[in-house]
Write a protein that binds this DNA or RNA. Structure first.
Lengths: 277, 277
DNA sequence: AGATGTGAACACTTTCACAGCC
DNA sequence: GGCTGTGAAAGTGTTCACATCT
């Protein structure tokens, strides 16, 4: 019995694909900007460009939400803003607590886009007694002892961990025990949580290492003809562009620049070769 | 010209899958911890647990790097640390500049795991003249005017943008023009870059919105879950939880505070309401 | 004409399950 | 016996291309 982990009800349900969910905030941001400029409608092409994705993907994404566009015309900006907000659950208020008010925690507390959209910083919590009472971003920091009380009284279900790595798991456990079911973790640790609790992590170090990997690859490639600035594709992830072929030359410039060439995010393995510093 | 975007040489080549690359830093961190505890070898099962993934995935990932394990035994910790470090390009030194030394920039500059592995903060840059000369994390902040000079003199190829959204694209353009080919963007904007430049973004607001989406879903479901603590799976990504199915009650800790009910407002045609900035 | 919405093809990722080596 | 390494299967995500509707 315990073994059985064979079949899972699949993710069928009728849910929106995770990849799509991850892009909705992007669309929402682009739409909000259009809304502020009082633009009434957009085509999938325009909106896609603003969000940094391609239009086919955007249309497919929207198709999971419903048919909110008008053929031959495009999408109504205000209407879409509302629909996406609703889908993301932003039409309700989400009280959030930030634990660990160091440099990072303070930065998060001060981050504007935070409160602006459905999220409200309900409390700032730190383990340092010296911090207690100090105002950060207009909110008085409270001591960790109050954690459970704060969570319960405010009905907090989303917690942000910005503590040192060593304290993260313990803080996480307390948050979860107190009722938090979604955690955004900035500490460089893997958190263990019970089923049903979502954890997303943001890790500077990991992102840099991924960049370094691609950077290292670039070093071994030919600078090819600078094709000229093209609208960036945003995330490095995707494939992106066509790439080099074989190309033997070794133009490589003496300085450091030059690099701008084809093969962007694309892995397109080639000779590694170590680059100078 | 410019049109042709027809065929892509496939991602065949020798490349390591992007998904695998993204996990290597995770493995490396777990391995480093083991190394510090002088653990000589690990099994895929153990290491996977420490990294928060499952063992099949880990073995598959490693298989792209080569055959670095020993059947019946496991992997040699030190050896793997070295191989992964090399694959990620961490055996060389990567000078990095951070632009925008506000709360967040300062937090990044102070972030330890930064310098610890291959990365070195070569300079801190800010547009505010009042910041110039001030030491942050032991490094004197320099003015934006010096940007190009700094990039060139230090051979910087990785830049971190921690400026307000409004300044990000401009800073990005200058970084790229000066020779930077990898950018880590913390500003909530889509950056446009020439081909060949990698951009990765870290966006608090987006992460929170993704959490809110899942949180909203949970609200409409049976409290079920709570099957007992299982190693956290890390990213919320996957289906996870499913919950559907029969689902036995058994809520663990009390205090479940059911934050807000699911489906808010009416599904169809409702007043859009303009979102705040 | 112009743009959405979507089935179908393709590409990438994860998981399974077991052969092969220690 | 134990554990890695890997084909094959299954599941997800992306792109194409065109039917469909305004």
């Amino acid at each position: 019995m315990a073994t059985g982990r064979n079949h899972r009800p699949a993710t069928r349900s009728r849910g929106i694909p995770e990849a799509t969910v991850a892009r909705l905030p992007l669309y929402l941001r682009a739409l909000t900007a259009l809304s502020e400029r009082s633009v009434p409608t957009v085509s999938s092409e325009e909106l896609a460009a603003a969000a940094g994705v391609n239009s086919a993907k955007l249309r497919k994404d929207f198709s999971y939400l419903g048919s909110y566009g008008t053929r031959g015309v495009g999408y109504d900006v205000e209407y879409l803003v509302y629909q996406i907000s609703r889908e993301l659950g932003l039409t309700q208020d989400w009280p959030v607590v930030i634990v660990g008010i160091g440099n990072l925690g303070a930065a998060l507390a001060n981050y504007g886009g935070f409160a602006s959209r459905g999220f409200r910083v309900a409390a700032l919590i730190d383990a340092d007694p010296a911090m207690a009472g100090k105002p950060v971003a207009g909110i008085a920091v409270q001591h960790t002892d109050e954690l459970e009380k704060i969570i319960e009284e405010n009905g907090v279900s989303i917690g942000v961990i910005a503590t040192p790595a060593g304290a993260a798991q313990q803080v996480c456990d307390r948050l979860v025990a107190a009722g938090v079911t979604s955690i955004l973790n900035f500490a460089p640790t893997v958190l263990s949580v019970p089923e049903g609790v979502d954890v997303r992590k943001v890790d500077l170090s990991i992102e840099l290492q991924i960049l370094a990997f691609h950077e290292q690859r670039k070093a071994g490639e030919e600078p090819a003809a600078a094709a000229g600035p093209v609208a960036g594709s945003g995330a490095a992830a995707g494939s992106g562009a066509a790439a080099v072929e074989a190309a033997a030359g070794a133009a490589r410039a003496g300085a450091r620049k030059a690099s701008a060439s084809a093969a962007s995010g694309g892995p397109e393995g080639d000779v590694p070769a170590v680059m100078p510093a």
